[in-house]
Structures are given as C-alpha cells and as structure tokens.
Design a protein around this nucleic acid. Structure first.
Lengths: 137, 137
DNA sequence: ATCCTTGCAAATGATTTGCAAGAGT
DNA sequence: ACTCTTGCAAATCATTTGCAAGGAT
C-alpha cells in the first residue's frame, strides 16, 4: 500500500491532502469506523472536518477505493479495497481481523447462486466470536 | 413459525400485543428494516409507536428471538432467528433472500478460525449481486 | 400486586447539505 | 482557468431516553 495518491487518482478522484491522510489512517488501522478515523486524523490535522471525513468515505467507497464492512450491532468499519476475504469479528473487543486466504467457498457460492440465477458481484463473510487476546482474559 | 407468544415467552420476555404484531410482520416479510416494520405495523395498529418498535427489536435481538442482518450501504434488516445461512442481497431492488442450506463452509471456517485460535459464535454471509427479477429488466 | 412494557415528547447522536473560499490538475 | 473539494454551520434523519399510565403474569 505505497502510493495513496495513485490509488485515489486512478479511481477518478483528486488526490487531496485530506484524502491521503484519511487513507493512510485506514491503512494503518486496517479496519476502522468513521468517528475513529476522525479522532485519529484530528491528532495530526485538527482542521480536517468530520463532514469531510463523511464525504470522502462515501466517495471512496463508491469509487472502489474502500470497502464497507458492516457489523451486526456496531457501526460499519472501512478498509482499503482488496479481494474479498473473511473477517473475524471479536464481539468482546470489537476488533476485526482478516483471514488472508481466498474465500474457500467461492465455488460453492457460485453454484448456489447459479441455482437461483443470481448474478454475484461480491461476497461478504463475517465470523463473529472471541479473539485469542480476549480469550485469555 | 406458529406461535409467536411462545417464542417470546421462551426468551424471557412478556408476550405483549405489540411484540406479537412486530414478530408477525417480520415473519411475513422475511427480512425487513425497522422503519419498514413501523410502516407496516401502523397499517393495522396506528397507535403502536416507533419507539416501541426500536425498543422491541433491540430487545428481541438480545434475547435471541431475532437476528440482525447488516447490509453494506443500507440499513440493517431483521429476521426471525434460525440456523446461520446465506443471504442473497440484491443491490438493485434491495431484496434479501435466504439460501436454505447449511452454510457449506462451516468446516472450512472452523479450520481457519482454529488456526487463529478464534472461538466462533456465529457466522454471517452476504452475497451481493442482482436477483433474477432485476436481471430480466 | 408486581414488574415489565408502552407511548409520548424531548434529548441525543449520526449523517447530509448548501455555500463561499481554497486547492488540484 | 476550470472544476472538484473543503470547512463551517445548519438542517435533517435516526436512535435513545425519562416518565407516567397501562398491561401481562
């Protein structure tokens, strides 16, 4: 995840300072909610407004720079777009971890969807439970 | 899905008229958002308040009568709780359909989660795309 | 009789919008 | 230069809360 400016320009948006700052925060945290992004971004750029964070997240999601990760009972988190993968969601500490393998089930999904004549565009898999860290305590 | 009163009482809640009405609407529609529930419920019971719908959805989710289905870019929908299964989410008409098979991947999930020492409590799979109806048009 | 639940209205929180000034290409 | 983007404040929308009255067990 080297060049944020390129990612943004390639999507058709202008590479503003605000967007690059937001992207770098998301990249650093992996999965993060809008208000968390704002809190983080404020530390280095106190004038960057919450409205700007909102506008940009929406914008970058619809331009395929970011992906929304909706989570039951919580606010959505956002991540930099990459191939579909599995999320481990800790219901205790609210952390989200990627499992970086191909979703092992895409063929099964396609078969199922095919039976229903459903045209797949993307898949989203959340596994809820307790992460190793929280299990200890 | 015969006896709403039983479902509610078994969960430890009182079987009020409002809860049974809400449950029957969810049952009828399968997957439905809070404001849609309210609109529907108002038709037969105009005095049932939106606050009551909110309170009861939250309550029945935490008492395991309902399950929240979070959807990227949309408001969550709610369904009557049953075994984990796959949702086909149409990004065109916003409909949600169940695929009523065991999630074909639970063993794969467990293996993956096991490698990470992650204790699974539930899984949530959304497949986004275009449903047969919308494909025609 | 007791405790839980409702409905209302108000409070809070989250998100969106309009617009003039400023930044990117 | 031109167009897109920002920041602010206000507007809007979504959700939660407190409390007195009513309902379920």
């Amino acid at each position: 995840m080297q060049c944020y400016a390129e990612m943004i320009k390639n999507s058709g948006l202008k590479a503003t300072f605000q967007r690059m700052t937001i992207l770098s925060v998301i990249d650093k945290f992996g999965h993060i909610s809008i208000d968390e992004i704002y809190e983080e971004v404020k530390k280095t750029h106190p004038t960057l407004s919450l409205a700007t964070v909102y506008k940009n997240i929406l914008n970058m999601v619809s331009h395929n720079v970011l992906t929304e990760v909706p989570i039951a009972g919580k606010k959505s988190k956002y991540e930099i777009k990459k191939a579909d993968h599995i999320h481990l969601v800790c219901t205790n500490c609210n952390s989200v971890t990627d499992i970086d393998v191909e979703i092992p089930v895409n063929s099964a999904f396609e078969k199922l969807a095919g039976e229903e004549s459903f045209k797949i565009s993307s898949t989203q898999v959340n596994i809820y439970g307790v992460c190793p860290n929280c299990s200890k305590a």
